[in-house]
Simulated assay, not measured.
Amino acid sequence: MNKVTAADWIGREDVVQARLEPGLAAMMAATLNQPPPQEGDVLPQLWHWAAFPALAAMSELGSDGHPKLGGFLPPIDLPRRMRAGGALRFHRPLHVGERLTAHARISDVVEKSGGTGQMVFVTVQYEISGESGLALSERQDIVYLPMPDTFQPPKAIPVPTDLVIDEAQEMSEALLFRYSACTFNAHRIHYDRTYAAEVEKYPALIVHGPLQATYLIDAAHRYRGMPPSDFKFRSVSPMFHHDTLRVLAEGQEDGSLKMCTATGDTHQNMQATASWEELP
């Protein structure tokens, strides 16, 4: 019998149906200091992540709080797992309480070597439909890494200075807990300081990448007065719960925004691009 490898997971598919109920939308709004949307209102961009949580039983969780591997995602023998980035194309808006269907497919599994050693990237493609048809296409990039002996921050990327957006958001343990609750994310690096320090060797709790992306796309929406049609992002350095998150953006000649989250004036944490295109 041939040995099963992570590459054998390429092509695996999963279909999940859900809806983001008004109660959960109100919880997300409270977490983000926004007015609660009502049933039927347009769902703010990226809030759909709360509609499709990984509903693993407690017995199916690993020691890190993530669902154990070997189901939809491949059983990669690297203990650290996180969202590295992604890209989204928005076709039509979703609405609070709308019936949603997410069709997921693993499109690639790639092994690389970097400064932290062996890395494996798993790419998952999603098509999310509402009651009126396809609403958004999404790519999620998931990275698997070895567990470090000590915390070694990535090389700092300077913060841009020619800005059209410069906003500040205070991070806190309570904020991270609430966002984890809204998205049913039990990864312990976001709420368990002892685990984060002793096991994954972080100096503090980690601010969720999806939370940073949500602040970025919301700022882009407010700046242009309309939601982006395309948004892509990637994490370049961890942000911690005691930091002040800055949302920064530079205007581009094509009308897009080159964006990032940053820790003070020292370095970038997540890079992103928001762009607008006339949709049919």
Results as ranks from 00 to 15, higher is better:
Val110His: 12
Glu167Gly: 08
Ser132Thr: 13
Asp8Tyr: 00
Arg81Ser: 10
His103Thr: 15
His221Asn: 12
Arg246Gln: 03
Val207Ala: 00
Ile76Phe: 08
Glu21Asp: 12
Gly97Trp: 09
Leu145Gly: 01
Glu170Leu: 11
Asp149Met: 02
Ile157Tyr: 02
Val159Trp: 07
Lys155Phe: 02
Leu176Thr: 04
Ser235His: 04
Ala18Val: 10
His242Arg: 11
Glu98His: 13
Leu216Met: 13
Leu134Lys: 02
Ala197Lys: 08
Ala197Gln: 04
Ser180Cys: 03
Ala6Lys: 06
Ala18Cys: 08
Glu138Trp: 12
Pro160Arg: 09
Glu13Cys: 11
Trp47Ala: 01
His66Val: 00
Glu250Gly: 09
Ala25Asp: 02
Val16Ala: 10
Asp254His: 10
Pro160Asn: 08
Asp166Val: 08
Asn185Leu: 05
Ser137Val: 12
Leu20Pro: 03
Thr150Cys: 07
Arg139Met: 11
Ser180Gln: 06
Met82Arg: 06
Gly114Gln: 00
Leu46His: 09
Thr123His: 10
His221Trp: 14
Ala6Ser: 15
Met58Cys: 11
Gly97Tyr: 00
Ser256Asn: 03
Met82Asp: 04
Ile189Trp: 08
Phe240Trp: 04
Asp14Lys: 14
Val159Ala: 04
Gln252Ala: 15
Gln140Cys: 01
Glu21Cys: 04
Arg178Asp: 09
Pro154Tyr: 03
Ala249His: 11
Leu100Val: 01
Lys68Asp: 11
Val199Ser: 09
Asp162Ile: 04
Phe184Asn: 12
Gly86Glu: 09
Ser275Ala: 15
Pro238Asn: 06
Val42Ile: 15
Gly65Cys: 03
Glu278Ile: 13
Asp230His: 10
Glu111Val: 06
Glu170Pro: 07
Pro280Gln: 12
Thr266Phe: 05
Glu277Leu: 14
His241Tyr: 12
Asp108Ala: 15
Pro153Leu: 00
Pro280Ala: 10
Lys68Glu: 10
Leu20Trp: 11
Glu98Pro: 05
Ile10Tyr: 00
Gly130Met: 05
Glu13Met: 10
Leu24Val: 11
Asn33His: 14
Val124Lys: 12
Ala102Pro: 00
Thr273Pro: 01
Ser63Gln: 13
